[in-house]
Design a protein around this nucleic acid. Structure first.
Lengths: 132, 132
DNA sequence: TATACTGTATTAGGTAAGTAATACAGTATG
DNA sequence: CATACTGTATTACTTACCTAATACAGTATA
């Protein structure tokens, strides 16, 4: 599992871990039942304290995205389709909110912004399809 | 000047203020010599402590983006020609690219994604207009 | 001069994040 | 059983962020 922590972004490390694992689960990059790296393993890889990772994992567990077994490890949970849909929408909304605020701040025409977004969607969608 | 503070993002408030003002200056949305809102004014608007805004303004001053005059206020500085400017379209594209990639990865319907973006735009746009 | 604004400084306090160190409890394997 | 892993708990500490309150100094206007 590849995680990237940007220590200059101002976002707490544990938040970045949560967000990235959440996204990977939602994108189907990891399957239900799959084991995530151990607290110590991931902490060593990311060069942070194990308790920081444990904190992130606790939040993921509280959000029912993973199941933790003491002595064994952490496993991706089965996500109900309704829950997955809601989580996906929340992830996208956060990104689009940032874009929308910026578009408004910079006084970019809404139709222009929407057109650009749709074009980008189609661009990356066709790239994804060409991989199937 | 419209600023939006997302208290759930984990990014410190002063960082968000810095980043958004920086972005607007670099995009040419505000001109050299233009006055920014006072510390107290912006703090009241964003419902934060004035010292938090003062901290952000200090960083902007340290980065030579603004000039502060005690008793008068804060003014956008002349930016040297060497400073790399991004166009508004480039800025927005970077953000929308991330959203588009994510929407594709999460297999979110394009019309749904576009509808969400437009709603968010209109939401923040109506906030901006209500301040004019 | 008084008033209302402007930014700045200071003190004190609370919360959050991250860390180090240590130890415990549980699991799996040889 | 010993070992090596697993997650968890705890204590203590530092740094960062944010706040409230207060006051000072500077500027602009009536």
């Amino acid at each position: 599992m590849l995680l990237d922590i940007d220590t200059h972004s101002g976002v707490p490390i544990y938040r970045q871990v949560i967000d990235q694992i959440t996204q990977q689960i939602m994108a189907g990059q990891v399957e239900a039942g799959e084991q995530l790296p151990s607290v110590r393993d991931l902490a060593a890889r990311l060069k942070v304290n194990p308790m920081t990772i444990s904190k992130a994992y606790s939040f993921l567990e509280a959000g029912n995205l993973v199941e933790r077994q003491r002595g064994v490890g952490l496993f991706v949970a089965k996500i109900g389709p309704g829950e997955a849909e809601q989580t996906k929408a929340e992830i996208l909304q956060d990104l689009l909110r940032k874009a929308a605020v910026t578009a408004v701040q910079l006084e970019i025409d809404p139709d222009e912004a929407v057109r650009l977004f749709r074009e980008l969607y189609e661009h990356y969608d066709s790239r994804r399809r060409s991989k199937l």
